[in-house]
Design a protein around this nucleic acid. Structure first.
Lengths: 221, 221
DNA sequence: CTACTAACTATCCAGTGGGTTAATTAACCC
DNA sequence: GGGTTAATTAACCCACTGGATAGTTAGTAG
């Protein structure tokens, strides 16, 4: 009724390349995390965007490149978070525990990122490997751990023979597994690793484990 | 050449339901592990089998049920392996270390299983949850750990306040992550967690970590 | 030897999904 | 304000994919 043509009008048809691109990335991140690389549908991503499918190909080239872009952005977010990790001024033991807790918190707060990493591993990390922006710059977390380890050994409190990368692997494995495998673990053992009333328990457990390992008498083995 | 007709002949056209079913399962396991649930192609699975696609639907009903069957069989294999874990007669510390090493070895030897579990987690463990054969029976590993923990606490060597399920999570997380995330970890930090010349290093590291945690003075935190 | 059933093969189909072609329009430059 | 380009839309394409239909043959019971 009323004024004839132009039904509803294409409302927000304002041109903003940056915004459109960012919106596609955001939606794509959620969709890839939800359904996996193959399971994600380009049409579905487009539908949840204010743009069309063609825009995805216009800006990213294809599904594969879109997924790579999603990974690149996700890793960039993490790196930023790691930059903010402030453990200066703490003694080595407290610093490591703090860092482990930060890792724990970060994994908990970004389940979508965990899923993307799992998905990328299913695909043998081929996108990350091909990407130039991801593989190059090292994680700041490694440097921080390295410095704490050094200080701890100088103090004589850390006796374990590990380097920063391996310790990072140890901490990450616990945090990552708790989120990534919570579904199968819950189904198999009837225990929700991410239940809120167990959160502190696991957070403490992680810190205890790492510190115990680092400060162990060195007698065992 | 030689005898005319019947080119090669449908050689092994012998009827054997069990063998056909087993072959489909075997091929499907590899294909799902390789490409993920959505990425796996029923046609491809059929092609790698001595049978046809129709047989898959004949025996399993559909792609979804086939994947569930693959998971069920994979978990059954693990359970069998866990049954064989012989740690009787060892003192608690040695027993736990041995069990951790067995877990380590098993994860290393079954990367396809790791991938399947990762894939199933991406799908929120919906297949396992729906399956009747998997969720029901508990893992024998939990019972073994439980008994060792009890003995260790009775001896006074284990001071940590953990139960069997959580300790299993701790051990599994390290072993699982090392295999499941080796690609992204390698790409990011330039370290191959599954390199053969590092194998002993990580195996020892795992045992040290778990024992240190269990026997820690309990002073920290 | 016949009849019957389980195991198996060949072929087709409708919907889907990544990608494309081509036309349109907003913004920016001078 | 005319022209150029970047951003955007609409419609189409066709290989692929899970699944289905229907027909065939090996084994076996009587």
């Amino acid at each position: 009724m009323t004024t004839v043509e132009e039904p509803a009008r294409r409302a927000g048809r304002i041109r903003d390349a940056a915004r459109t691109k960012a919106e596609i990335l955001k939606v794509a991140t959620a969709e890839f995390a939800r359904a996996g690389y193959t399971g994600a549908r380009v049409d579905e991503i487009a539908a949840r965007t204010r743009t069309t499918k063609r825009m995805i190909y216009y800006y990213f080239g294809g599904k594969e490149q879109l997924f790579t872009a999603v990974l690149e952005r996700s890793y960039a977010v993490i790196r930023e978070a790691e930059q903010d990790a402030d453990v200066e001024g703490l003694d080595p033991v407290a610093a490591i525990r703090r860092l482990a807790e930060l890792t724990f918190d970060h994994h908990e707060q970004h389940p979508d990122f965990i899923r993307l990493v799992s998905i990328e591993n299913i695909h043998d990390a081929e996108h990350i490997t091909a990407s130039e922006t991801i593989g190059s710059l090292n994680s700041p977390a490694i440097d921080v751990i390295g410095r704490i380890l050094e200080a701890g050994r100088a103090d004589g409190v850390f006796t374990a023979d590990v380097d920063a990368v391996d310790l990072h692997a140890m901490i990450s494995s616990f945090c990552f597994f708790r989120v990534s495998n919570r579904h199968t673990f819950g189904a198999l053992f009837g225990r929700d690793l991410t239940a809120q009333d167990r959160r502190e328990h696991y957070r403490t457990m992680l810190g205890d484990m790492v510190i115990a390992y680092l400060t162990a008498g060195g007698g065992e083995r």
